[in-house]
Simulated assay, not measured.
Amino acid sequence: MSLAKKTVLLIEDNQDIRESTSEILAMADFTVYTAENGKKGVELAQANPPDIILCDIMMPEMDGYSVLYLLRKNESTVDIPFIFLTAKSERADMRKGMEMGADDYLTKPFNDLELLNAIETRLQKRGRAIHNVGNATSFEGLRNEAKSAKLLNELSGNSRLHPYKKKQNIYLEGDHAVTVYLVKSGQVRTYMTYQNGREIISGIFTPGDFLGYESVLLNMPYAENAEALDAAELYLIPKNEFNALLFKDAGIANKFIQLLSGNIQEKQEQLLKLAYNSVRKRVADALINLAEKYHGATTETCEIKVSREDLASMVGTANETISRTLADFKSEKLIQKEGSTIRVLSMEKLRKIKQ
């Protein structure tokens, strides 16, 4: 991708950082506009919308959060990629910016390559989004990834698509629930951590699944942690837009009532299995659930990619116990195993495993 002739608005109150960053961008063939405070930055962005915005957080007159808020409210600037430049490394500050709609952040001091890579990535993503507008094939493919085409159309239409790296946190237990998430690609797990550090996986989510909506509907902090199992893309649906849509469309509201009811029943069954089923039975059930999740209920043989640690978290036991149980299943010709890939040889036989 050519970076020539792209315009960058740099909003930074520190003169030395502003000048050095402008110099780097100019050398990379960007046209650079600068503002020494948030108020001037908003005025420049609205008067002559740039291709991308770099903005400091802590500034006089108007901080970066206010800048982002105002630009996301303006039709001419709402879709401009926005990257925070911040010396604040605390997770809460970074998370606040991302939840408000920032596309990325760079922590000072950053080097030239980090800066240019972040800009190029965001411009490429923006270019693909523009290219796909009105593309019926692309939209239909997107609709087919969700379990409800109507929900995807309504909820993802005005939401922000955000990429997550493998093992990256999406939200943490206790975080203020301001976003509902819809998985577009990849896999996500939710889990709870106990005082001794032990994890219990409470859910696995694949394309078309929603997560975080229980806490949003109850107006409570997230009750568990969410993490990308591999590289993933999620739609971020703001709480106010989600609630407005539920009030507007009874059909969508009913869909989420069904999801909530199903989740409650599923969690009750999970607790009963943890309490009464043997480890052997719980491992078999976990493999069945994963197989049905990824390959459908009618599959008889399939491959599942799951780590020993994640399987132990799903079953509620130690890693060593999982290893022994999988070794038993392998000797009984129920599965084959290579690394983190498990090939189920007979779903029927797994289902017949008793206590």
Rank of each mutant, 00 (worst) to 15 (best):
V315C: 05
N319P: 06
A228D: 03
E224M: 13
G141T: 10
A231P: 03
M58E: 13
D209F: 11
I11M: 10
Y294R: 09
Y235G: 05
T341A: 08
V78E: 11
L68S: 00
K88M: 13
E173L: 04
P207C: 09
G127W: 10
N144I: 03
A253P: 05
N37L: 10
H295G: 07
E154D: 13
H295W: 13
S2I: 10
K167R: 12
A47R: 05
L44E: 11
T107I: 15
F242Y: 00
S20W: 02
L70T: 08
S313R: 05
T325P: 01
S313C: 07
L260E: 07
E241Q: 07
S340H: 13
A177H: 01
E224G: 04
K239M: 08
Y191L: 04
N319T: 11
D209Q: 05
L115A: 07
F210H: 03
D209P: 06
N240V: 09
G208I: 02
L142K: 07
R282G: 06
T77I: 07
G339P: 06
I130H: 06
T298P: 01
E303H: 11
P50A: 04
L271Y: 15
L234V: 14
A45H: 03
E19A: 10
Q268G: 12
L272T: 15
G64I: 02
S307K: 07
T7Y: 00
R143V: 13
K305I: 11
A28P: 07
V42L: 11
S261F: 09
L25H: 03
T325W: 02
L25W: 06
Q355D: 15
E61S: 04
A47Y: 00
E348H: 13
L142P: 00
S138M: 12
N196D: 14
I288F: 04
Q195I: 14
F30K: 01
A297E: 14
G197T: 08
E19T: 10
R126N: 10
R72E: 02
I119N: 01
K267N: 09
L211V: 09
V306C: 04
T301W: 04
S148P: 02
I52L: 11
P238L: 04
L71G: 01
V178H: 06
N240M: 09
I119C: 07
N48Y: 04
M27K: 14
L217F: 10
K125A: 14
A35T: 09
H176D: 09
S313W: 07
T193S: 09
T190V: 06
E332C: 00
T298W: 08
S138Y: 14
T206L: 14
G296P: 06
A223G: 10
K305W: 08
T86V: 07
S159C: 05
A318E: 15
M220N: 11
